[in-house]
Amino acid sequence: MKNRLKVLRAERDWSQGDLAERLEVSRQSVNAIETGKYDPSLPLAFRIADLFGLPIEDIFLKD
């Protein structure tokens, strides 16, 4: 699944580590989600959406 995580993170000038800390996951996880290697669970996707103040569908896009 494609996502806009890298762009949203860059807009806020956050590193992968910064985002990982805010989501309470490892930097590995953020990297895997950003690069599309791992699709997050629904609860984690909601946490990401809440953090950016956006609906899930504005962050995660259909292939």
Binding site: E24, V25, Q28, P40, S41, L44
Partner: peptide, 8 residues
């Protein structure tokens, strides 16, 4: 493990 990706 709280990190779901590491758990996977």
């Amino acid at each position: 493990l709280k990190d779901e990706y590491v758990r996977m």
